[in-house]
Structure formats: C-alpha cells, structure tokens
Design a protein around this nucleic acid. Structure first.
Length: 202
DNA sequence: AAGCTCTTCAACCGCAATCAC
DNA sequence: TGTGATTGCGGTTGAAGAGCT
C-alpha cells in the first residue's frame, strides 16, 4: 500500500524549468489563479506535478518575487528573527516582502551561518562560542579544560582560549536572544542595551 | 588547459497540518 | 467525526558555475 503519490511519476518532467514552461505556468495562473495545484499542470499543458508548479510559482515566478542580493537590513532581520524563531523559515520570510522561505533558508545556510561562525558566534544558540566554551569548561577538570582549549586552537579566537584557561565564569546573569521570549515585537522594540550585540556585529 | 573541489541555489522529498466532504 | 485530498513546510540533494591547483 503506502503513501499515495502526489502525481504519476512516470509522465512527469523533473529538473530545471525552461522559459517556455515558465511562460505557460505564468499565463495560466494570470488567467485562472492558483486554485487546485493538482489540476494546474494538466490544464496549463505542463508535464509537471502540481507540487513542482506551486514551488516554481512561489519561489520564482510570482510577480512580487524579489530577485537579487539580500540587503544588510534584510540580513539583520533574518538574524534577529532566527534567534527567536529558529528554523521557522516561512515565519521569517513573511517579515521580508518578496522573499520566500526557500530563499531565506538558502541564504542562511550558505552565507549567514558562516558569517556568524566566523565571528565566533554559534548560529544555533546565537551565543558567542566563548560563552559556550566557558560554560563547558566549568564542568571539566583543569586538565580536560586545557585539552579542550588545545583542540579549539585554529577554530576560535585567542579570546576563547584565554577564557578556557582562566577561572570558570558565571554567565547565568546574561541572556541569549533566544531567551527573550516568543514575541518578536517585544524583542525588536526592547531597549538596545537589552539586546545582545549579535546583529550589530554583522 | 584540464581536472578537481567548493559554493550556490533551484528543485525535490516526505511529513504534518489543514481542508472538504 | 472520520477520512481522503490538498497544501505548506523544512530538510536535503544535485546540477552548474566559480575558483583553485
């Protein structure tokens, strides 16, 4: 038995869309709208599955789609929202007019994640690696902490290594952006000193 | 110039949520 | 209320191009 396929795989085309297919899909949707994706490829004369058509439309063809590079302010917004919502790409994309969840996800995975890591900030928790390493170091005996510091060489900045070889530091009084609560409006509108400096560093 | 590796991003897949009956 | 169909979402893949040796 198993799952019902979304379309007949045999006579369905896959891979890159051609300009001709784009035209067919765009003009069909311009005339009839986007109701019932399952019927759209059939009626538009496309050998594609409905799912593929929906994706092509939302991720590329729709009129308000914004082509081109992400601006600095868009990147800042993504980082802010990611610190609150995590990998809820559709939620994040909803705050960026013309951008799709796929767009945001790709940009995060290829650019922003590396950018944060390069700055010594953990892209998952949005805390500086130094904080995380220092937290770990508090649970280790000095020889183990020294070994960890050695292993961290080449990965993190001198600052981190310095922290690891010093006395444990209590970061309990500090908070991460993720701990700021679920309301993004509260986060965006809170006092500057209440935010961490992740976004500003970028 | 050729071959290899890395990066980017469009597209696919499977699951979950929602809708319609 | 239950069930099948449809839509939406997030993770993953793979082709194409860029950069390096």
């Amino acid at each position: 038995m198993g799952r019902i396929p979304c379309c007949e795989k045999d006579n369905v085309k896959r891979g890159q869309w051609t300009p001709e297919e784009d035209n067919k899909l765009s003009s069909y949707i311009a005339q009839h709208g986007t109701r019932n994706w399952r019927l759209i490829p059939k009626n538009a004369g496309l050998q594609r599955c409905g799912k593929s058509c929906r994706l092509r439309w939302t991720n590329y063809l729709r009129p308000d789609f914004k082509h081109g590079q992400f601006s600095d302010s868009e990147e800042q917004t993504i980082v802010k929202l990611h610190s609150v919502f995590g990998n809820r790409w559709s939620l994040i994309a909803a705050q960026l007019p013309g951008r799709t969840d796929n767009d945001v996800k790709n940009h995060w995975n290829t650019k922003l994640k590396k950018k944060l890591s390069g700055m010594g900030i953990d892209p998952v928790t949005h805390k500086p690696f130094s904080h995380l390493m220092a937290e770990i170091a508090t649970t280790l005996a000095p020889p183990q902490a020294a070994h960890l510091a050695e292993a961290a060489k080449g990965c993190f900045k001198d600052e981190v290594l310095h922290l690891l070889t010093k006395k444990p530091i209590n970061f309990q009084g500090q908070h991460s952006t993720a701990a700021l609560g679920n309301n993004i409006t509260n986060y965006i509108n809170c006092k500057p000193e209440e935010k961490d400096d992740t976004v500003e560093k970028i």
